[in-house]
Amino acid sequence: MEYENVWILGEQNNDEIDVVSFELLKRGRELADKLNVDLIALMPGYGLESEQLEELIHYGADKVISVDHKMLSDFLVDPHINVVTSLVNKYKPEIVIASATTTGRSVAPAVAINCHAGLTADCTGLDIDDETGNLIQTRPAIGGNILATIKTPNHRPQMATVRPHSNQPLTPDNNRTGEIIREKVEGELLKTRIKQVDFKPIDEEGGNIQDAEIVVAGGKGCSKEENFEMIEKLAELLDGAVGASREAVDLGWISYPHQVGLSGKTVSPKLYVAAGISGAVQHLAGIKTAENIVTINNDPEAQIFSVADFSIQADMFQILPLLIEKLEKRKQSKAQN
């Protein structure tokens, strides 16, 4: 058979391998085991140590293909796409999965065009068809109102992106061993028509809702910008990040990087607190993978109740100030002890 093996597209973040790479390995491992083929991590980057590349094996890869070049240190689009395209053409993997990060969402569509591959975005489920061995891809569409099951019957590779942080990585096994293949790239492949002239990091508190353990989010129910401070205060007391519904962002109460939902970010924190958020399907799609959901809303019809683990149906302006007061007292008494 010409096309073989399952690939994941690894990503580097500063000097480290981005956690999304390990998340993908868990998804990839399941597929490779079903097909009884190798799971290979393609890792374009710059300056990663051998021990770091071996981590990919500990997290489930059978082999790693490492491409190390200075031109791959910043994401400049062109070199990444050229390198991945050329290696896909060389090795002919049957399946390629990438994370639906800003990088993966740029590289995967371009590689799909270059390699005449089928690509399905933002899959929530990946499986193998027992009969045909085809990849079965499930994804939400139309604002999360439907789940579509998609196949790529006649084209290879079958490509898919998966939402970052929609699953945990496997527990690393430090005894796993595997080959690290170092691919040299040069010349045309590294040419770029895009240059990075600067990088402005996002202020910590807003930018990191995707990595936060706890997210406290507010919505239209806050009624006005000043009231959003309650959300921020509660987030601070719980050591959490601040999230928001699309309405709150559209009304200008808080900036877009805080937006949770289909047109914002997907979060999977340990605890998601939604106050004054009715829970449109688009919003629910972004919090489905949260471990615990707490909601405070005074509308008995609010859809958010259907996904919550703990709900208080009451006026958030009665609940939140009291909650904040009690948590503050608790903190003070803890500090005194």
Binding site: N13, D74, F75, L76, T101, T102, I194, K195, Q196, V197, D198, F199, K200, P201, I202, G207, Q210
Partner: peptide, 8 residues
């Protein structure tokens, strides 16, 4: 994810 790339 981490901020803003300024690109030419």
């Amino acid at each position: 994810e981490a901020g803003y790339q300024i690109l030419k």
